[in-house]
Amino acid sequence: MNNFSAIATVGMSDVERFVDAEYPAQLGLESPAAWITTDFARRAPLVIEHDVKVDDALYMMKKAHVKAKLVVDAQNRFLGIVSASDLQSHKVLMQATSKSIPRSEITVRDVMTDKAHLHGFAYQELENASIGDVLYTLQELGEQHVLLLDKSMQSLRGMISAADIARALHIPIDITQRAHSFAEVFHVLKSA
């Protein structure tokens, strides 16, 4: 700790106001989409390795109070996304049954949404997009998340989720997810 020094502090007894926020306290559908973006240039993405067991992954997500994480391999290459809902869904038992292994052996990779099924748009599109535009896009796709691609670097630059929008606007958002496989369609029909 010899390389650090204490920062001078000041008393708070005379302070009554807050600095004006960079963004308005009350966001709306017309507000710029950039205001609710998780930009990986400013904040590292929340990631989880593909071989983590689903129960361990769910525990980690609950402890961190997050609803989704990006899935990576051992070399930190992007593979997909997994949500807390995925980790508690019928996918876990379906995978255990189809692989004839105990539920406790199912990994994140088994239940994640592969990047081939995810959608994104260029980060540069945020310059002209509103929160309403993003919400409409999510609803049209039937997805909880949209990824942002930095086209110049061919890298994942950020993400916007329906949960981020709901939290920012203080409104409930229900996006009906679309099935990615016949097995998922079959399960929905069987449950009905």
Score class of each variant (00 low, 15 high):
Thr113Asn: 06
Ser152Glu: 09
Gln139Trp: 07
Lys69Met: 13
Gly158Ile: 03
Glu30Gln: 06
Lys53Arg: 14
Lys115Ala: 02
Asn2Trp: 14
Ile173Lys: 09
Ile48Glu: 05
Ala168Arg: 12
Met94Val: 02
Leu93Lys: 13
Lys115Thr: 03
Val15Gly: 01
Leu149Ser: 07
Ser98Phe: 07
Ala21Gly: 09
Gln139Asn: 11
Phe186Gly: 03
Val15Leu: 12
Tyr59Gly: 03
Ile101Asn: 09
Tyr59Ile: 01
Met61Gly: 07
Asn128Gly: 12
Gly158Tyr: 08
Arg43Phe: 09
Val10Trp: 12
Ala74Tyr: 10
Gly11Val: 03
Arg42Asp: 11
Val71Gln: 04
Ile175His: 04
Lys115Arg: 15
Lys99Thr: 04
Ala74Lys: 14
Arg157Met: 11
Asp174Pro: 02
Ile48Tyr: 07
Ala122Cys: 14
Leu156Phe: 05
Arg167Val: 06
Leu147Ser: 02
Leu126Thr: 01
Thr38Ile: 06
Phe182Lys: 09
Ala74Trp: 14
Gln124Tyr: 09
His117Lys: 12
Ile101Asp: 04
Thr9Pro: 00
Asp164Arg: 15
Lys115Pro: 02
Asp39Asn: 15
Val15Glu: 11
Asp174Ser: 10
His117Arg: 07
Leu118Ala: 04
Pro24Asn: 11
Ile7Lys: 13
Met60Asn: 13
Val54His: 03
Ala6Cys: 13
Ser104Pro: 01
Val19Gly: 05
Lys67Tyr: 06
Val66Asn: 04
Ser130Val: 08
Leu87Glu: 01
Phe186Ile: 03
Val82Pro: 00
Gly142Arg: 11
Ala168Phe: 02
Ile36Tyr: 06
His50Ala: 09
Ala25Phe: 12
Arg167Phe: 07
Trp35Ser: 09
Ser181Trp: 07
Leu29Pro: 05
Ser191Gln: 13
Asp14Thr: 08
Gly11Ser: 09
Val82Gln: 02
Ser85Pro: 00
Ala74Cys: 05
Ala162Lys: 08
Arg109Glu: 14
Val47Phe: 05
Leu126Gln: 02
Asp51Ile: 04
Ile106Ala: 00
Leu29Phe: 10
Tyr136Ser: 12
Ala162His: 09
Gln154Ala: 11
Leu118Ser: 03
Glu140Phe: 14
Arg167Tyr: 09
Val71Ile: 08
Gly28Val: 08
Ala183His: 10
Arg157Gln: 08
Asp55Phe: 08
Ala168Glu: 12
Val54Glu: 04
Glu49Lys: 12
Lys62Ser: 07
Phe182Tyr: 14
Arg178Tyr: 14
Phe186Met: 12
Ala44Ser: 13
Asp55Gly: 02
Thr9Val: 08
Glu140Ala: 12
Ala68Trp: 02
Phe40Asp: 03
Ile160Arg: 06
Val52Tyr: 05
Leu156Val: 00
Ala33Arg: 05
Phe78Gln: 04
His187Pro: 00
His170Pro: 00
Ile175Met: 12
Leu58Thr: 01
Ala34Asn: 10
